[in-house]
Amino acid sequence: MNKEKCSSLEEVRNHIDRIDQSLIELLATRQYYVDQAVRFKHSVQDVQSPQRVEQVIAKVRAQATEARIDPDLIEKLYRDMLQHFIQRELKEIRP
Rank of each mutant, 00 (worst) to 15 (best):
D72C: 04
A62V: 04
L73T: 15
I69E: 03
L26N: 11
D20Y: 08
E54M: 13
A67S: 04
E10R: 06
R52C: 03
A37S: 13
D20V: 09
Q87A: 08
Q51D: 15
Q51C: 09
R79L: 10
K59N: 01
I74D: 02
H84M: 14
E75V: 07
R30Q: 13
P50D: 13
I86A: 05
A62H: 04
D20T: 10
K91G: 03
A67I: 00
K3Y: 07
H84P: 01
R39G: 04
R88Q: 13
I74L: 10
R30H: 13
M1V: 03
R88H: 14
V44C: 01
A58M: 03
K76I: 07
I93E: 03
S8I: 02
F85H: 15
K59M: 02
M1E: 11
S43F: 05
H84E: 14
I16S: 02
P71Y: 14
E75R: 11
L90T: 04
S8F: 01
M81A: 13
K3M: 11
Y32C: 12
S7H: 08
S49R: 10
I24K: 15
A64Y: 04
Q55L: 13
Q48Y: 05
Q55Y: 13
Y78L: 12
I24N: 10
R18W: 00
K76T: 14
E10H: 02
R94Q: 09
A62R: 08
D80K: 10
S43R: 07
L23M: 07
A64N: 06
S7W: 02
S22R: 14
E92Y: 07
E54R: 13
A64W: 04
E54L: 12
I74S: 04
V56C: 08
H84N: 14
Q45V: 14
R18T: 06
V38A: 05
Q55G: 12
S7Q: 06
L90M: 05
R68C: 05
K41E: 15
Y32R: 15
R39E: 14
L27E: 08
K41A: 12
K5L: 10
V60T: 03
K5T: 11
L82M: 11
Q83C: 00
D70P: 07
V38Q: 05
V38F: 03
I74A: 04
D70A: 13
Q31R: 15
V38E: 06
Q48V: 14
V34M: 04
H15M: 07
F40W: 06
S49V: 03
R68H: 09
F40H: 10
H42N: 14
R61L: 01
L73V: 15
E4L: 06
L23I: 11
S8Y: 00
F40A: 08
K41V: 04
I74P: 01
H42A: 07
A28C: 08
V44G: 00
D35A: 09
P50C: 13
K76P: 00
I57P: 00
V53S: 08
V12R: 12
I86K: 10
Y78A: 14
Q31T: 15
I69Y: 02
T29W: 00
